[in-house]
Design a protein around this nucleic acid. Structure first.
Length: 468
RNA sequence: GUCCCGUUCAUCUAGAGGCCUAGGAUAUCGCCCUUUCACGGCGAGUACAGGGGUUCGACUCCCCUACGGGACGCCA
């Protein structure tokens, strides 16, 4: 039997990291076993489902590269099928109509809570005749005794007493089916073999198994993966720190970094930290996923992001970096080639945003001085070395790294100065800051004319300071 | 409140009864490399929630307590 897994989000918001990890695990499980990964949109909640959310989820999946083999299927397109099952249940006495008013249900709940009981529907309408033309819901007749046991792929054996369960609503007053019914019918019709989902669904599983049994079908295998907590240990939710996967893209994260981070959250393979997609597919095993929830740690994500920024080809990083450069108001299509800048700067940035920030200086007409750095580096003592470097650079025909390197070192030697005394003022003059890559490379990439202009400006700054 | 689930460094984790003086990674700190910032290298500190069993031996098995999470919807 071929493995078939699915990701079944409800379109009531964007795709966040928790959902993305569940989708990743499900996708990996299918890929590992040469199976199919199906995308299903659970939009039976007509009130809250939106097309924008569907698009946001699709966009997130695409960005992460979690391509699906079938779907997206929409539950709203399958109402006829759900109704068919509901009618079948009604005909065979496995479901019944209920018209209990909200007030009765609320009172019941309060009484049960007061008696320290678990709030459950009491089966008041079981066996009562209710006119199908009156407003009513349909409830599934849950078994009243026995135990539902299943072997969860991550939790192991889990058991629930049927006495803990109640007769859940499977069709609303407005005629729409509810989640627990539609999910069972869909997983059945779509021949899902492995249901991998968040553990907030663990409590729903026995209900779904009971519905499946009423249908005379065998349940699939279940794997309930724990929730992801925020940096502060509280549950990650849309209201609390759960950011959209797309926000990570906007903040300069590489999809492979997020994927690598997510796969290591709750799962591991010995001491290995870095996993290519192929390695994940090969090594991932849902049975090795931890049972305990884990906290999202942005610091580690940043570390992985830096790893991928510096190990991916400069060409690819440059392509992803380009839009971020544009947002900073510079044109990366101009000199120097962005690829070369990336090759030099990659190890200094843990996000594309940071990379853009430290690289913009190569494309700016007018650079900004870091004040402390200016005080420290543009002093009278820097005039002589700067002048000499400037003149030699101006006379340089072959604008390339080696001669630039020779000039800087030559000046230090001539003046009997340590490299720092020449290098730091020059670095500051060229970049306006105290941090940059190799000095000769930095000068080279800045270009001849811009370099000369920047040195002139620095010397002007020194003079200005002397007269103040 | 009831039911379900969980608990190893700050964080992600290794650990399937003796391999554990509890390993790795991130973060932090120190040293080295270095004209700067990084990268890299080396090193340091920090953890088995608590209590009872079982066993010759428990991070590993069982029970209790504490703490955390989830569920208890005409949401999914």
């Amino acid at each position: 039997m071929t493995v078939r897994t699915r990701f079944a989000p409800s379109p009531t918001g964007y795709l966040h990291v928790g959902g993305a990890r569940t989708a990743l695990f499900s996708w990996l499980h299918a890929r590992k076993h040469g199976g199919k990964f199906i995308l299903r949109i659970e939009d039976t909640d007509l009130e809250r489902s939106t097309a924008e959310s569907v698009n946001a989820i699709l966009e997130g999946m695409t960005w992460l590269g979690l391509e699906y083999d079938e779907g997206p299927f929409y539950q709203t397109h399958r109402f006829d099928r759900y109704n068919e099952v509901i009618e079948q249940f009604l005909d065979t006495g496995k479901a019944y109509r209920c018209n209990c008013p909200k007030e009765r249900l609320e009172k019941l709940r309060e009484e049960q809570m007061a008696a320290k009981l678990k709030p459950r529907y009491d089966g008041h309408c079981r066996g009562r005749h209710i006119d199908p033309n009156e407003p009513h819901v349909i409830r599934f007749l849950n078994p009243q005794d026995g135990t539902v046991v299943f072997d969860d792929m991550v939790r192991g054996k889990v058991a629930f007493q049927n006495t803990e369960l109640d007769d859940l609503i499977i069709r609303r007053t407005d005629g729409s089916p509810t989640y627990n019914l539609s999910v069972v019918v869909d997983d059945l019709d779509m021949e899902i073999t492995h249901v991998i989902r968040g553990d907030d669904h663990l409590n729903n599983t026995p209900r779904q198994i009971n519905i499946l049994k009423a249908l005379g079908k065998e349940p699939p295998r279940y794997g309930h993966v724990p929730m992801i907590l925020g940096d502060d240990g509280a549950r990650l939710s849309k209201r609390h720190g759960a950011v959209s996967v797309m926000q990570y893209r906007d903040e300069g994260f590489l999809p492979e970094a997020l994927l690598n981070y997510l796969v290591r959250l709750g799962w591991s393979h010995g001491d290995q930290e870095i996993f290519s997609i192929d390695e994940m597919v090969e090594l991932f095993d849902i049975e090795n996923v931890n049972k305990a929830p884990s906290a999202f740690n942005t610091e580690k994500l940043l570390w992985l992001n830096q790893h991928y920024i510096k190990s991916d080809t400069p060409a690819r990083v440059a392509r992803l970096l380009s839009p971020h450069m544009g947002e900073l108001g510079v044109d990366p299509a101009k000199w120097p080639p962005l690829e070369q800048v990336v090759a030099m700067q990659a190890e200094r940035a843990n996000s594309l945003l940071e990379l853009a920030r430290i690289s913009a200086v190569f494309y700016q007409e007018e650079i900004e001085y870091n004040e402390d750095g200016a005080k420290k580096n543009l002093k009278a003592a820097a005039t002589e070395p700067l002048t000499r470097v400037r003149d030699k650079l101006a006379a340089l025909d072959d604008w390339s790294r080696e001669p630039i390197h020779a000039i800087i070192h030559g000046v230090a030697e001539e003046l009997g100065l340590k490299m720092g005394k020449v290098g730091m003022p020059l670095r500051f003059a060229i970049t306006g800051g105290v941090a940059s890559g190799d000095l000769d490379l930095t000068v080279y990439l800045t270009g001849k004319e811009p370099s000369l202009q920047r040195i002139d400006r620095a010397m002007g700054y020194i003079q200005q300071r002397a007269t103040d």
